[in-house]
Design a protein around this nucleic acid. Structure first.
Length: 917
RNA sequence: GCCGAUGUGGCGAAAUGGCAGACGCAACGGACUUAAAAUCCGUUGGGCCGUAAAAGGCCCGUGCCGGUUCGAGUCCGGCCAUCGGCACCA
């Protein structure tokens, strides 16, 4: 409460006034009353196919929130923004006759929860339980229509049993490059299945965060620091579990196309996947004259990846990443100490040092030479850390003439620079990286870059020197953590080899460790549980745990069938909710209703820039590949969660467990809510707004409506308590529109409400409001829907009589936004009029009649040279000629046209006449 | 550096290429009240002309500069600013 002293001084200063103060309407009675009724009647429970009360005639709609990570701080007003939006859609869709799946759960494993537990010196299981309880209480107060019977918790063994099971499906499959699908490992015909599994163990330099005592995925490292906590991250070779997400790079990229996601998010994913086309070229290592190379060194080949094979004649040196395995084999005796020292220094560097701070190029000569295969020139081989071990082949050909980085390197170390691309304009050819004409390049002389690339690639292939190749920036997913608070791996080790546990042995439950903090050495805390680790005399359990993202990779599937203990999700339930069987019905019911707003022209142009010449589309790929109909959450998950979940989904789809190749058809990102000071909400700034305080003062409906009235859902916007007050006033006006206070000070239904026909004007505003609210909910423009309802109330509050039908219709329209208030008023109407209207939640969403919205007389603007000079009323029937004549005859207009030649008259029917003189 | 989003009153915002600022907040004036709160009514982009006061009229105005168009907040080109993402990816 003390936080809000500045915004509401009188409440705090004179405490008793608040409790004494008359509420604008009795939300403190209404809110709990209806929440209890909803819970008791389980009104928002969605039965699965085959269950009692399931109605197969209805189409389905799956509307999902990104489930929260229950932190110790509880909710702030940013969380319920997306939740309110989806709740409005869910309530609306139910009234439109859909079976609506609208669930909520808890993503509770992972680093932040564990860090919080360590800080408060409590066990993460304890703090997690408490945090979830707090979140749930807070969410319930807002009156969301979740089906709480489907609540799930990623830390529940009944849930993570299936997370482990899915891991085993991944472990037990491989990616068949011919079918471009995951297949059971049993179909693999090679000698070493472990080398192709989609989950595998690798020993190589990883992101190690000493402070957190764990390794992190590339995606969890930001600017060389851990995303959680902001601690330094260094490279360190360790044995780790990896998931072969790179096998899916192409599909993850191409199959974005059919999704209704913001183009910006698709672009982020495309960039993250980072596809580039080019060629791989082999350079052979030259025998040294006095460099002490052994004869066999000549047999070594260095393979490089380049997107510009047309600059091959300009390659004047080569660079190997310090970690490249050939370095040891080719380095000369003389250069060995320098190279060794350089490699050690590079290994110690943090990511931050290696990238951001390393403006100046560094490197060291290996003493070895390679042969440029196209012209047989001897070129020196260097080691430098500007070449990354994880991308391409970890080696490059240095073309300083036409690459900025190579140019900087060559200048620093005095290496040769050749011009091989002639710019089309008058730019300096040295350092020119664009497309031009190949020069000094016999095989491709005179060709434009694109053709040159094609021709030289053919030439390389013909001479068996390499091949055209595609490379992705995306790396395999580092999947193990040296932490306690995560899913244990269902894996045991025997004679140095890993082996999957049987399905019957799941779940593998973590041992109840008292001492769960990271060891700091890189050995996982689970190793402390000696009894637990000893699986048998010969076998030990894997002691790493899964990363935070594991549970959220498939939770949307579990929501379809959360109680199932036979399968991770029942087949029929999955087919129904994820959209396999019900598509036709849905499309029919859905026609034109859930389409995203038409994109602006420039968005289309941007999209079309994406080079799709290489896109391979399976003809059977569905136009709407995703299962969840609407998914709302923050942009922060643009690449991490959304990419990982798509990957798991595709593996399960390939293995035949799922009916759709993509998890989320339509994605919307809600914008961040800032504090009243326009700054990001944070504890240190003291500008956090707690939903509980808002609801105490103004009620849940005002809270919900304000969240939506603030502005467009996707936009970043600041909180304003004054704004909440304004919306609360609107709801109070709705209350007083239908209710009046009697002599005794009690509220009773207004005598103005009568079961009479509305006037023409009243019908018009009612239908206009229906149209606007309907369309605005469909396009998620909740702010303008509320504006329209305010206009409606402003009109009727002045009326002497209130037609019952118009009031009922209005309450239905407002119901998704303010469910408590409207339920109460609806009940009061039922009590008085006894017209068997039924409960408000059972109502059908009203239709509107376009014909009723048409005016018979319209105001037409008269412009002279594009400037508004006058207005006139005209019948809607008036022809263009009549409008023209009327405009010209208008004395006010004649003032402007007198003595001038009329050059042109533009008429926009029913809108305006523009006279050009 | 590259990619993307955004830029409209004092504030949150609204506007199929056709009356810029709907709706709300704040502010001001009034009604009610012993008084305040609440509520209700009215005014409210800037400048100017007009009038006793009104009515009314004119000019400017959607980050900046240019273009297309009878007409641009909206479309096109070029800048500037803020925010977000990527960042030695060969």
């Amino acid at each position: 409460m003390s936080i809000h002293v500045h915004s509401c001084p009188f409440v705090v200063n004179i405490g008793f006034v608040m409790s004494e103060r008359r509420k604008p309407y009795p939300f403190d009675h209404i809110d709990p009353k209806w929440q209890a009724i909803w819970q008791e009647r389980q009104l928002f429970h969605a039965p699965n196919p085959g269950e009692k009360h399931f109605d197969p005639a209805k189409p389905k709609f799956y509307v999902l929130d990104m489930f929260p990570y229950p932190s110790g701080a509880g909710l702030h007003v940013g969380h319920p923004e997306g939740y309110t939006a989806t709740d409005i859609v869910a309530r609306y869709k139910r009234m439109r006759g859909f079976n609506v799946l609208h669930p909520m759960g808890w993503d509770a494993f992972g680093l932040p929860a564990e860090q919080y537990a360590i800080k408060t010196a409590e066990h993460p299981a304890t703090t997690t339980r408490a945090n979830i309880a707090k979140f749930k209480t807070q969410l319930k107060r807002i009156g969301f229509s979740y089906d709480w019977q489907r609540e799930i918790n990623t830390t529940d063994p009944r849930y993570y049993k299936w997370t482990q099971w899915i891991f085993l499906q991944i472990y037990n499959s491989w990616f068949n490059p011919d079918t471009k699908k995951a297949e059971p490992i049993s179909t693999y015909r090679g000698t070493d299945p472990d080398s192709v599994r989609l989950a595998y163990v690798a020993d190589f330099p990883v992101n190690w965060c000493p402070e957190l005592g764990t390794v992190l995925a590339n995606e969890e490292v930001v600017d060389g620091k851990s995303e959680v906590g902001g601690f330094p991250v260094v490279r360190r070779p360790m044995r780790q579990w990896m998931l072969r997400i790179t096998a899916y790079a192409e599909r993850l990229l191409n199959e974005l196309d059919g999704l209704d996601w913001p183009e910006g998010i698709k672009l982020l994913q495309r960039n993250w996947i980072g596809r580039s086309e080019g060629a791989e070229i082999d350079f052979s290592v030259a025998g040294g004259d006095d460099h002490g190379l052994t004869v066999s060194a000549r047999d070594y080949k260095i393979r490089v990846f380049t997107t510009r094979p047309d600059t091959l004649y300009g390659a004047t040196y080569m660079v190997l990443a310090p970690e490249h395995s050939l370095v040891d084999l080719i380095v000369s005796e003389e250069q060995w100490p320098a190279v060794r020292e350089y490699r050690e220094r590079a290994a110690r560097k943090s990511d931050l040092e290696r990238t951001e701070l390393a403006k100046e190029k560094t490197g060291v000569f290996t003493g070895a030479y390679a042969i440029n295969p196209v012209n047989n020139e001897r070129i020196p081989i260097w080691v430098a850390d500007y070449v990354l071990p994880g991308y391409g082949t970890g080696a490059i050909m240095g073309v300083p003439g036409h690459d900025e980085r190579d140019l900087a390197f060559a200048r620093k170390f005095n290496l040769q620079i050749h011009e091989v691309v002639q710019p089309l304009g008058d730019e300096d050819p040295i350092g020119f990286v664009g497309e031009g004409i190949a020069i000094n390049s016999p095989v491709i002389e005179g060709l434009p870059s694109r053709e040159a690339i094609r021709k030289i690639t053919e030439w390389i292939e013909q001479h068996d020197l390499g091949k055209g190749a595609i490379n992705y920036k995306l790396r395999d997913w580092l999947f193990s953590r040296q932490r306690y608070w995560g899913e244990p791996f269902p894996i045991i080790w025997e004679n140095g080899k890993h082996r999957a546990l049987d399905d019957e042995e799941l779940p593998v439950v973590s041992p109840p460790l008292e001492e769960y903090k990271p060891t700091g050495t890189g050995e996982p805390p689970l190793a402390r549980a000696r009894e637990w680790v000893r699986y048998s005399d010969k076998a030990l359990r894997e002691t790493n745990t899964m990363p935070q993202w594991a549970g959220s990779c498939w939770y949307y599937l579990r929501f379809c069938d959360p109680q199932n203990d036979q399968r991770f999700v029942g087949e029929e339930a999955e087919r129904y909710w994820m959209g396999g069987v019900n598509d036709e019905a849905r499309m029919a019911n859905d026609e034109g209703m859930t389409k995203p707003k038409p994109r602006k022209a420039n968005e289309e142009i941007r999209h079309s820039k994406i080079n799709s010449s290489f896109v391979i589309r399976h003809s059977s790929f569905p136009a709407k590949p995703g299962g969840v109909d609407l998914y709302v959450g923050g942009t922060e998950h643009a690449v991490l969660h959304l990419l990982y979940a798509r990957f798991w989904h595709k593996v399960l789809f390939d293995l035949g467990y799922l009916s759709k190749p993509e998890p989320f058809q339509r994605l919307v990102n809600q914008g961040i809510i800032l504090g009243e000071d326009n700054q990001k909400m944070s504890k240190s700034r003291g500008n956090i707004v707690n939903p509980d305080d808002v609801i105490d003062q103004y009620g849940a409906d005002a809270f919900r409506c304000y969240e939506m009235f603030m502005g467009p859902l996707e936009q970043m916007k600041p909180w304003s308590m004054r704004g909440v007050e304004g919306v609360a006033r609107f709801l109070a006006r709705v209350w007083r529109l239908l209710m009046t206070e009697n002599q005794a000070g009690d509220w009773e239904l207004s005598a103005r409400i009568k079961d009479i026909d509305p006037t023409g004007a009243e019908t018009k505003i009612t239908h206009a409001t229906t149209k606007k609210v309907t369309e605005d909910i469909e396009s998620l423009s909740f702010n303008t829907a509320i504006s329209q309802m305010m206009i409606f109330v402003n009109v009727f509050i002045k009326a002497e009589t209130l037609p019952l039908s118009a009031m009922r219709r209005f309450l239905i329209l407002l119901n998704p936004f303010a469910p408590h208030l409207t339920s109460e008023l609806w009940e009061k109407l039922n009590a008085k009029f006894r017209d068997n209207a039924g409960d408000i939640t059972d109502q059908k969403w009203p239709d509107y009649d376009e014909r009723l919205l048409v005016e018979d007389e319209v105001e037409i603007v008269i412009q002279v040279n594009g400037k508004v000079r006058h207005r006139m009323k005209m019948s809607i029937q008036a022809t263009d000629e009549e409008a023209k004549a009327a405009a010209l005859a208008n004395p006010e207009i004649q003032k402007f046209t007198a003595g001038k030649t009329i050059r042109k008259i533009v008429v926009v029917p029913r809108k305006l006449v523009n006279i050009v003189v």
